[in-house]
Computed example of a mutant assay.
Amino acid sequence: MLIDPVPNGPVQREPRGFVSAPDQQNQLLAVLADAGVELGEYDHRIVEWMTLSPGWEWGTVATIASWVKRAADQTTT
């Protein structure tokens, strides 16, 4: 199965695929870092909760990451 990447625009359907929990965590942290979001200890706990214990499915994590990515793009244009 193909894995849909983090969307760059409005999400019309659930992103597909399986992404392992550690990879979801890495991708979400990368999007937050690219957006210039400084994370505190509790922020890291929430990222871990969303992705690792027991974690959300890729479609949810990818959509949230897409919101962050698009919001950051809005502030730089």
Score class of each variant (00 low, 15 high):
V19P: 13
V47R: 15
Y42L: 11
M1S: 13
L29Y: 09
D4A: 13
W56E: 08
I64A: 07
L28W: 08
A21E: 06
V37W: 05
L32Y: 06
E14M: 08
I46V: 14
W56A: 12
P22K: 07
G55Y: 11
D73A: 00
T60Q: 14
V11P: 11
E38W: 09
E38R: 15
Q24P: 10
A72E: 00
P10Y: 00
V47M: 11
Q27L: 15
V19T: 10
S53L: 13
K69A: 00
G9W: 00
T60S: 12
K69R: 15
N8H: 10
D43L: 08
G55R: 13
H44A: 06
V61W: 04
S66F: 01
R16C: 06
A62Q: 13
L52P: 07
T77F: 02
R13Y: 08
S53A: 13
N8W: 02
F18I: 12
A35Y: 04
D34G: 12
T75P: 03
T76P: 05
V68W: 00
D4V: 08
A35W: 06
L32F: 08
T60I: 13
W67E: 00
A21C: 10
A33E: 05
G40K: 15
G9Y: 00
V11I: 11
Y42H: 12
L2E: 09
L39F: 11
P22Y: 02
L29M: 15
T63D: 01
V68L: 01
R13D: 03
V47S: 10
I64F: 11
Y42S: 08
Q24N: 07
V68Y: 00
A21W: 10
S20T: 12
M1R: 15
W58H: 09
G17H: 15
N26C: 07
L52T: 11
I46F: 12
R70I: 01
Y42I: 10
V31K: 08
V37Y: 08
E14D: 12
R45K: 14
W58E: 02
P7V: 02
L52Y: 08
G17N: 13
T51F: 12
E38C: 05
E38D: 09
V68A: 01
T63V: 04
L32P: 06
L39G: 07
V31D: 03
Q24F: 07
A30Q: 14
D34A: 09
H44Y: 10
A72I: 03
M1F: 12
Y42D: 11
K69W: 00
Q12V: 01
I3F: 10
G40H: 14
P7A: 02
L2H: 13
R45V: 05
R45M: 09
R45H: 10
